[in-house]
Simulated scan of single mutants.
Amino acid sequence: MSARHHTSAELGKRHGRHRRVRGIALTAGLALGALVLASGCKPVAGKPAPPIPTLPTSSTIPAPTSAPTSTETTETTTSAPPSTTASSASPTASSTIKPTSAKPTATQPGPPPGNGTAPAPGTVGFRGDRAKLKVVDGPGSAPPGTTWNSGALRFGGGNVTLENVYVKGGIEYNGKGTLTIKNSVIEGNHFSWSPLLGNSGHINVSDTTITYKDSQWPGDKWGNGAIHGDATVTVQRCDISGTPDGIQNGPGNSTIEQNYIHDLLRAGTYPTNTHNDGIQSYGGPNTVIRYNRIDISADGKAYDGTHQNAAVFIMEGGPGETTGLQIVGNYLAGGGYIMRVSATVRGAIITDNKFGTTAGGWGEAFVDKGATIAAWSNNVSSSNKQINKPS
Rank of each mutant, 00 (worst) to 15 (best):
residue 14 R to D: 12
residue 253 N to M: 05
residue 80 A to D: 05
residue 188 G to V: 01
residue 113 P to I: 00
residue 215 S to A: 09
residue 136 V to M: 01
residue 231 A to F: 00
residue 361 G to H: 04
residue 51 P to Q: 13
residue 391 S to R: 08
residue 30 L to T: 15
residue 78 T to M: 07
residue 360 G to Y: 06
residue 263 D to H: 15
residue 347 G to T: 03
residue 100 T to D: 13
residue 284 G to L: 08
residue 199 N to C: 07
residue 352 D to Q: 12
residue 245 D to V: 04
residue 265 L to G: 02
residue 65 T to R: 12
residue 31 A to P: 03
residue 324 G to A: 09
residue 314 I to V: 15
residue 86 A to D: 07
residue 4 R to H: 10
residue 175 G to D: 02
residue 110 G to M: 01
residue 224 N to F: 12
residue 293 R to S: 09
residue 49 A to L: 11
residue 322 T to E: 13
residue 248 Q to R: 13
residue 375 A to S: 15
residue 312 V to G: 07
residue 191 F to A: 09
residue 32 L to G: 11
residue 376 W to F: 11
residue 128 G to H: 09
residue 261 I to D: 02
residue 252 G to W: 02
residue 243 T to H: 04
residue 205 V to Y: 00
residue 257 E to Y: 13
residue 171 I to L: 11
residue 191 F to W: 09
residue 199 N to L: 09
residue 245 D to I: 03
residue 234 T to M: 06
residue 156 G to V: 01
residue 127 R to M: 06
residue 99 P to S: 03
residue 362 W to M: 11
residue 308 Q to H: 05
residue 330 N to L: 11
residue 133 L to R: 00
residue 85 T to C: 02
residue 361 G to P: 05
residue 212 Y to L: 07
residue 368 D to F: 12
residue 1 M to L: 12
residue 133 L to C: 06
residue 309 N to F: 08
residue 323 T to D: 10
residue 81 P to R: 06
residue 168 K to P: 03
residue 43 P to L: 05
residue 139 P to G: 03
residue 329 G to R: 05
residue 242 G to F: 11
residue 205 V to A: 10
residue 293 R to L: 10
residue 202 H to I: 07
residue 88 S to W: 10
residue 259 N to W: 07
residue 72 E to Y: 10
residue 142 A to D: 04
residue 187 E to Y: 00
residue 370 G to F: 08
residue 142 A to R: 02
residue 103 K to M: 11
residue 226 A to I: 06
residue 224 N to P: 06
residue 105 T to H: 04
residue 48 P to L: 08
residue 145 G to M: 09
residue 107 T to S: 04
residue 116 G to Y: 08
residue 257 E to P: 05
residue 289 I to N: 09
residue 97 I to C: 04
residue 49 A to S: 09
residue 308 Q to G: 03
residue 131 A to G: 11
residue 120 A to Y: 00
residue 73 T to M: 05
residue 189 N to C: 08
residue 71 T to S: 09
residue 160 V to I: 06
residue 10 E to I: 01
residue 194 S to K: 01
residue 101 S to Y: 03
residue 206 S to A: 15
residue 241 S to R: 13
residue 78 T to W: 05
residue 169 G to D: 01
residue 357 T to M: 14
residue 319 P to C: 04
residue 157 G to D: 01
residue 235 V to F: 04
residue 63 A to Q: 14
residue 114 G to D: 07
residue 293 R to F: 08
residue 196 L to T: 02
residue 345 V to D: 00
residue 383 S to W: 06
residue 129 D to G: 10
residue 333 A to W: 04
residue 75 E to Q: 07
residue 383 S to P: 09
residue 29 G to C: 06
residue 344 T to W: 03
residue 301 K to R: 15
residue 142 A to W: 03
residue 30 L to I: 13
residue 55 L to K: 07
